[in-house]
Structures are given as C-alpha cells and as structure tokens.
C-alpha cells in the first residue's frame, strides 16, 4: 500500500515508513535522543526532498517525544527544572548558531566546517561513552564476581580546581529529581553550547545533550533520558512551526505515518530502557553513535554515484 505525500510530492510504501518510525521512536524512548541524525538521512535515502525530510522529522519528533516524555514522567524520570534551564540555554544557543552558520557561509567553506564538526563530535562523544561505559560494566562484573572492595585500589576523590570553580559560581541550585547541585549559569551555558552545535549541524542535539547531562551535569542516566526528551519536545515544536510557516516544508501526511510508528516505538523503548542498566544503555547509544559516524565517514570518503543533489538538508 502506497501513500502520496502532498508536500514531498512523492509516493511511499506504508509498511516501510511506519517501520522506520517504529525503529527511530524505539531509539528515542530508549536513549532520549530525537533521532533526527538517523531519520533525516533515511528519509532522504528513500526519495524525500532534503528540506521536507528535515522539517517533517522535527514534527514527527514532537509526537514521539510527547509520547516518550509522558512515559518517562510516569516513571518519575523527568527533571522539569533542569529541562527548563537547559531549554533557555538551548534557545539562546540555537539563535547564535544560526547566525554563526550564516557567517561561515559568507566566508565560504561552511559545508566543510559543518561536516567535520559533525564527524568529530559524533566520533568523540561515541568513543568516550563507549570506553567509559565499558569500563563501568567491567567494574560491575568484577564486583559481582566477589572481588573484595579492599582489593580494588580506591583512589580518594580529591576535589579538582575545576570542580571548586564550578562550586564557586553564583546561583547554585539544587535539582532534586537528578540529585545534583549546580550553578544555574553552568546549566544555561551548557544548554547554549549544545544549542550552537545543534544549529551548526542542523540537528536537534539530543545525542549531544545526553552526554552533557551524564558526564558534565552528573545526572543519573534514567533521569537524563526523560529530561532530554522533555527538552527536545519544546525545541522541535518551535522548529516545526517555523519550518511550516516560513519554508512550507512540513509534510503532514508523512509526519502522521511516521508518528503511527514512532509514538508506539517510544513507549516500547521506554519500557525496554527500564529493564536495562544505565551503563548498558550508554554503551548501546555509544555503539549507535559510532555506527552513524562510520556511515558518514564512508559517505565522505567514497565517490557518490551521482554528483548532483537537491538543495536543502545537511
């Protein structure tokens, strides 16, 4: 069964598109990423024009992250306070990032900078998460095997100058749900940083926000996933409206078909995530990020069969 899309002006297979939505929604519920870095290239691959693929994906993420946020909220996994602070930063960063892209384009070579940033960020984040969570899993295994705590050389944790500096920042705020205390300025700054990078790379930034929350804000993984989805929901509402209003590139039918899969996928992902350990989740996300990095690297290295492409996308 095929559906014709009113804005993309192409016909697509129903099982294919719902299946795609289901898989990406599952990843979204499982890891707290919007999945834009996966969905947009996949949509382009099946013949959707790049501008329509990116815009429609953001509307699809609105639905999937609503579903995921609700599911995580019921599990008590959403830190609304942290989410709102990050959102403020993300909004400022997004605006800054858009202007930065404009500047880069004027200087020429913008695409090169964007692609390299993309690959480097994905590669570094993926590798770090992979190694870190692998070590954590090994430690957990050793502990399980009955090695006495005394046998493991435990380093007394000394507060570094950097941590002292962070603690000296004003507006120290306690985030009860995450069980951490940080300066509101730090949280907003990190949100801004991710916002800038997300705007440069043309993605929602979930896969960058998750590591920032885990490693820099020291939030527990399950709260990270729920809070990330909450933040993504609002970012994508803004983006979807702007794309529909300014560019007329949101394909409603395509979004509904994707949603038919992704909203259910997000629920399944959330339930699956509940059964997995935080480090297992991290290592799976790390593998996913590394696979995507490898695919992008291959695309960059191999000569494409057709040397022309439609405008738009990234």
């Amino acid at each position: 069964m095929y559906f014709y899309l009113p804005i993309a002006l192409t016909s697509i297979s129903l099982p294919l598109i719902v299946g795609l939505g289901l898989v990406v929604g599952l990843l979204s519920g499982l890891f707290g990423v919007g999945g834009g870095f996966l969905m947009t290239p996949l949509l382009i691959m099946i013949g959707i024009p790049p501008t329509v693929a990116a815009a429609t994906d953001s509307l699809q993420i609105v639905g999937a992250s609503t579903s995921g946020t609700f599911a995580h909220w019921r599990l008590g996994n959403v830190d609304f306070k942290m989410g709102i602070y990050l959102l403020i930063g993300g909004f400022v960063g997004g605006l800054g990032g858009v202007h930065l892209v404009k500047m880069l384009r004027m200087m020429g070579n913008a695409d090169f900078v964007i692609k390299i940033t993309y690959v480097l960020m994905l590669g570094i984040v993926g590798s770090y998460m992979f190694v870190e969570s692998l070590n954590a899993l090994k430690k957990a295994k050793k502990a399980k095997e009955g090695i006495k705590a005394a046998d493991i050389p435990s380093k007394p944790r000394k507060e570094s100058g950097f941590v002292k500096f962070l603690k000296s920042l004003p507006l120290q705020t306690k985030f009860d749900k995450s069980g951490v205390t940080h300066s509101a300025l730090l949280v907003i700054f990190l949100g801004t940083f991710v916002g800038i990078l997300a705007a440069i790379m043309g993605v929602g930034g979930g896969f960058l926000m998750v590591p920032v929350m885990v490693y820099l804000l020291r939030m527990p993984m399950h709260v990270v996933v729920g809070t990330s989805l909450f933040q993504i929901l609002f970012t994508c509402i803004e983006v979807s409206f702007l794309q529909a209003y300014v560019n007329q590139t949101v394909d409603f039918i395509l979004a509904v078909l994707l949603l038919a899969g992704s909203t259910f996928g997000a629920q399944i992902g959330t339930k699956l995530g509940k059964k997995l350990h935080g480090d297992q989740l991290k290592i799976l996300l790390a593998i996913l990020v590394l696979v995507v990095t490898a695919k992008i690297m291959l695309d960059l290295l191999l000569e494409p069969s057709i040397l022309l492409s439609m405008k738009g996308g990234h």
Binding site: Q60, V62, I237, S240, A244, F252, A255, V256, T263
Partner: peptide
C-alpha cells in the same frame, strides 16, 4: 500539525 502531533503522542 503540531497540535495533532502532540495529541498523537498523548493518546
């Protein structure tokens, strides 16, 4: 479109 996406996620 946004309203329907939100509603779909909620339902």
């Amino acid at each position: 479109s946004i309203f329907i996406a939100l509603l779909a996620g909620f339902i």
